[in-house]
Design a protein around this nucleic acid. Structure first.
Lengths: 180, 180
DNA sequence: TTAACCATGTAAAAAGTTACATGATTGT
DNA sequence: ACAATCATGTAACTTTTTACATGGTTAA
């Protein structure tokens, strides 16, 4: 489970509340943890127990009190240890690929429609990705190396989508050859 | 949950036991469901209840009885309906990318080591992928279209890994520029 | 006035993993 | 002798998702 470490990562930029973390997660698509309430608030409590963060409560007149979490030295050490460790096997879950695997019973039109649905989604994701990279709304303002890494992370996603679109072209070509 | 539909998919090729399905899953990496016992045997019971499969029990002398599952017409209809539906958003969980996101505190050597670990893993996956495609051990022997799809599915994975390796080269280049 | 935002959290269900349990057979 | 294969399944646990719960503020 690296949600813990991802939270520590964001907190290594600056102190944040659960609410802010949730927004950070939702704007960082290459981080797959959806950042639903349940997970974030629970994990913050755990991190506090483990001594990786400290909690600062800021009272407000008009809104509920903000609980701002700060990373501790132990938290920074934990983050750095984890960052060095052997990465897990990369996992991809593409429903489209599985659907295609058993699409031989569909008509040509149905298959074309399926491919169109998928292509449209990839194109949208690509647009959003470029948007996010250019806006840099969730981006480290720490040092040049961190910024370089984040630039590359978004580039990774962009190239993945471009690669997927190329593959879709090949797929379409292959289907059309069969038709003639 | 498309494990259900993936099982129906394999059963649309030919009747299979839970044990055989497990092997099919383990040899088909682009299908992310690990196919652990618990999930497969449970799902088969459910599919039976729903009327999408029927169970045939074959007694054996030397081994426990085989429970061979056959897909029903309802099962075929369900599979085809699902294959036509709008694909889910594609999900990728790459621990490496998240580690890299917070690697700015690591030394040059530690970062290089992390990249090497990842690159090695991708290279291994690529080799295995090509092996599986050439062996065609889990492959539809149904019709030309199904075979074409499966060829393309493996090609998808191969091109994804190649794309990742290209990106890693760019990443290394960017790091070396900073060093000089 | 309606939607989005601020800000916290809990409960329950679904999905997925790991380990346990049994026990004969076949190949090296 | 040891590992792998055949073949079934269950129990306990972890992870993730969805929905519920509260309630004021701000901008169109």
């Amino acid at each position: 489970m690296s949600l813990k470490h991802t939270i520590l990562g964001f907190l290594s930029w600056k102190p944040l509340t659960g609410y802010e973390l949730k927004k950070y997660f939702s704007e960082t698509e290459f981080i797959p943890w959806s950042g639903n309430n349940n997970q974030i608030y629970k994990t913050l409590v755990e991190l506090d127990k483990e001594g990786f963060v400290t909690k600062e409560i800021i009272q407000q007149d008009k809104y509920p009190a903000r609980k701002v979490y700060h990373i501790t030295n132990e938290g920074i050490a934990e983050l750095s240890d984890w960052a060095k460790s052997k990465p897990d096997v990369i996992q991809t879950k593409s429903t489209f690929l599985i659907q295609l695997a058993w699409s031989d019973g569909l008509s040509n039109d149905e298959i074309e429609n399926l491919i169109n649905l998928y292509q449209y989604e990839i194109e949208m994701q690509l647009v959003m990705c470029r948007e996010r990279l250019s806006r840099r709304s969730v981006f480290p303002k720490k040092n040049a190396r961190a910024e370089f890494f984040w630039e590359m992370l978004w580039q990774n996603r962009i190239s993945t989508f471009q690669n997927e679109l190329n593959w879709l072209t090949q797929l379409r070509n292959g289907l059309n050859v069969g038709k003639e």
